[in-house]
Design a protein around this nucleic acid. Structure first.
Lengths: 333, 333
DNA sequence: CTGAAAGCGCTAACAG
DNA sequence: CTGTTAGCGCTTTCAG
């Protein structure tokens, strides 16, 4: 490890000169292409060591037309996207998959039109090989923008036909919750759903009602803890004798749990509670929350995999990957 | 917006031909350099419009030797870094600052030696202009690796002299907590600290004890909710008559709160509780948690700012920026 | 104020 | 199996 030309960072050319071969040969060795004589390989390796050579990613990208980076775009509502435990799990899955394919995610926010344009132009400029989109709002026009621009992209919980996406069987999740509550001999059920304009939320409710009955009372929240508290309070007012409740995400369930207990009811003694997501909030509850698990990390990984496929083979038709929910029984039921 | 040469994406050359000028002139217009005739500027602009030209970032980077991306490296313990509400706030601040300077963060994990080497080599390869490091562990050797490699980097809560860093007056935070508890007429204080090997955690405790007394009982947790529960239970065993407790982060405080209430004590009636961080966990507590706020978003932004300075002016000596904690009074005291 | 020319560092045919 | 030759698309002296 000795510096050769002190001022400049060594290039392929430098290594080639030291090793007494051509640039192309060095390039082959660096990129692990076989067709190179053993001895020469060794010589090149020594020259690399001696010069302290590191390949220049940018120069490489210019010719391969690939950057080894993908945009991870989050267009959640409000500023606190990164604090969302759900989003954290998605990122985890994405990062974990990408790193094994020497790719890195470029974090981008798309919370307004200017930001959305930025994302598109960044991709068009070759700043990233494709995009991973995580949105809750179904009316986000970014997916469409990317689709018409012909840029590789994969959506989490997609609503666009034109792009590949991953999603989960939300309806089935609602059914699992209902079955479980019924199993626990609960007869007076109720539910707290997410916002009316979030499809996934409506599906969960539909599934729950398919099993528990179409007339099961429901109050809509907005996925925050406080909204769970309010919804629970309202439910208690209209149906004080309830003995089982299904909540469309863990955070609202946490709020509901608190209200239930503050009202003097025990959980699961008087009322059984089932959440949704299996996020860190489920474990923060006392009692720990029984919940419908979304395999979010796997879904994130699948997104990444799909995207890398699209990057490798442009023109691949849009696909989707739908995951199964599962019941995680803890102490709230 | 009409496509000219259908197959290829338009280049500077194409625009130049359409506008009847040279590449250099187009480049000047694109980069907003003044010395260009009004009329020619207009002509170029029209040609850009007509061809649908977008500058190629990679080609530009190759010559400017700048990518417009920085690595955001997180080497937290365990896999769930992204779920940490604290980390989320840092990212928020970083992203918010960077976007206003047309820079994007490249998310990287540095949880083992191989990953750390990846970070260094990625930077050496010119994959990013610098690195932002967020670690809790003081013995992480990545900062040093970057320092010796001469790569621009800024650390959150730094422990290395060789790098710029941002931090907070943790000791003062502990003092604020103690003063507040004393203000509330609490006389039998106790505390739950973070791990012994986390400097920030020790400073908070030191500050608390400086005001509350060196003999105040303390149990160390590890910043998780469960550890907060255990610590509180132990504290209650040795000091059942306590009436005020300072907890080194909100998550542990949330756990402590639950144990306190389960033991039949009221908060803040019987026991007052002060947390630390002002993370989302503080708002998830019932009663809502009084806590010592860290201006994490601002700290994240400051990190980004420092880094961009270092990138713009290589050779700039390491600096630091130390922030003030503040007391946020809610309902647990 | 504008153009010509020289690379930035690398990969990828194509010969040999 | 190895070297030669072209570029990838852009910025930037340097003349004019």
């Amino acid at each position: 490890m000795s510096a050769r030309t002190p001022g400049r960072t060594p290039t392929l050319e430098d290594v080639a000169r030291v090793a007494g071969v051509s640039r192309a040969t060095v390039s082959r060795v660096v990129n692990g292409i076989r067709n190179v004589d053993r001895d020469i390989q060794e010589a090149v390796r020594r020259a690399i060591e001696k010069t302290g050579y590191t390949p220049n990613r940018v120069a490489r990208s210019l010719v391969t037309r690939r950057t080894g980076a993908v945009a991870l775009v989050v267009s959640g509502a409000g500023g606190d996207v990164f604090g969302d435990p759900f989003f954290g799990r998605v990122v985890s899955g994405v990062v974990d998959y990408l790193r094994r394919h020497s790719t890195h995610p470029l974090l981008m926010l798309a919370d307004d039109d200017a930001a959305r344009d930025d994302v598109v132009s960044h991709l068009r400029q070759g700043g990233a090989d494709g995009a991973l989109l995580v949105t809750t709002h179904p009316d986000d026009r970014l997916p469409l923008m990317l689709a018409v621009a012909g840029l590789p992209a994969v959506v989490f919980a997609g609503t666009t036909q034109a792009l590949s996406y991953v999603d989960m069987k939300h309806k089935k999740g609602g059914e699992l919750a209902a079955w479980h509550l019924l199993d626990r001999d609960r007869a007076r059920l109720a539910s707290i759903s997410g916002p009316r304009d979030v499809p996934a939320s409506q599906e969960r409710l539909a599934g729950f009602r398919r099993i528990a009955g179409d007339d099961v009372p429901n109050v809509a929240g907005n996925f925050t803890l406080a909204s769970g508290e309010e919804a629970m309070a309202e439910l208690l007012r209209t149906r004080p004798d309830l003995d089982g409740v299904f909540v469309a995400n863990d955070l609202m369930a946490q709020g509901a749990l608190g209200v239930l207990q503050a009202s003097g009811r025990t959980v699961p003694g008087d009322v059984a509670v089932v959440g949704f997501d299996d996020s860190s909030a489920a474990l923060a509850c006392r009692p720990k929350l029984t919940t419908i698990r979304q395999p979010v990390e796997e879904m994130g990984a699948a997104m990444a995999e799909l995207l890398l496929d699209h990057v490798a083979q442009p023109g691949l038709p849009p696909t989707s990957r739908i995951f199964e929910p599962s019941l995680v029984i803890r102490d709230s039921t």
